[in-house]
Amino acid sequence: MLLKANIMTDKNIKFPQLFLRLSIAVTMLSAVADRFGFWGADAAWGNWANFEAYTKKLTFFLPESLSVTSAYAATFFEILFPLMLLFGWKTRVGAYGAGFLLLVFALSMTMALGPKAPLDYSVWVGSAAAFLLAVQPTYFFSIDHSTNK
């Protein structure tokens, strides 16, 4: 009976899992697009300078040089992890990476801006979703799945 339940779960999880993977990836890439000005000047940051200033606010506990470095590091990882999720390559690593990155953002936002900001932007939800994705036994519709057959 348990085996049949697992088969049903695997069958029913394919599209929701893909939707979760793509949602996390696209959401994170959208934030990167914003800091490079692709969403226009009226977006959250609209340009790199505004994003850097925001990062300095969130990383108030770091020396300024490390704060600027963290803006570059965050951007690098906000491109790398979503691309891994998008293509389903090293999906577990990408999901854990996204989960930890979003967790760091949520904690930094909470310390610097209070609890409302990460709640309004669903950063906690994104982190939890990434961690949920990371513990999946297999990743359907992915490079990982096609190479593990």
Rank of each mutant, 00 (worst) to 15 (best):
Q17C: 02
Q17Y: 04
L18M: 14
L18H: 09
L18C: 06
F19Y: 13
F19W: 12
L20C: 10
L20Y: 12
R21E: 07
R21V: 07
R21Y: 07
R21C: 01
R21P: 03
L22R: 07
I24M: 08
I24S: 08
I24A: 08
A25P: 01
A25L: 06
V26N: 01
V26Y: 14
T27V: 12
T27D: 05
T27I: 08
M28L: 14
M28D: 01
M28G: 02
M28R: 04
L29V: 04
L29N: 00
L29F: 03
S30L: 07
A31H: 15
V32F: 08
A33F: 13
A33S: 15
D34I: 11
D34Y: 03
R35I: 13
R35S: 05
F36Q: 09
G37C: 12
F38C: 03
F38S: 08
F38Y: 13
W39T: 00
W39H: 11
A41L: 11
A41T: 14
A41Y: 05
D42T: 14
D42M: 05
D42A: 13
A43D: 01
A43Y: 04
A44V: 11
A44W: 05
A44K: 12
W45A: 14
G46C: 04
G46V: 11
G46T: 08
N47R: 09
N47V: 03
W48E: 05
A49C: 00
A49D: 15
A49S: 14
A49F: 08
A49H: 10
A49T: 13
A49Q: 14
F51L: 10
A53M: 11
Y54S: 07
Y54H: 14
T55C: 06
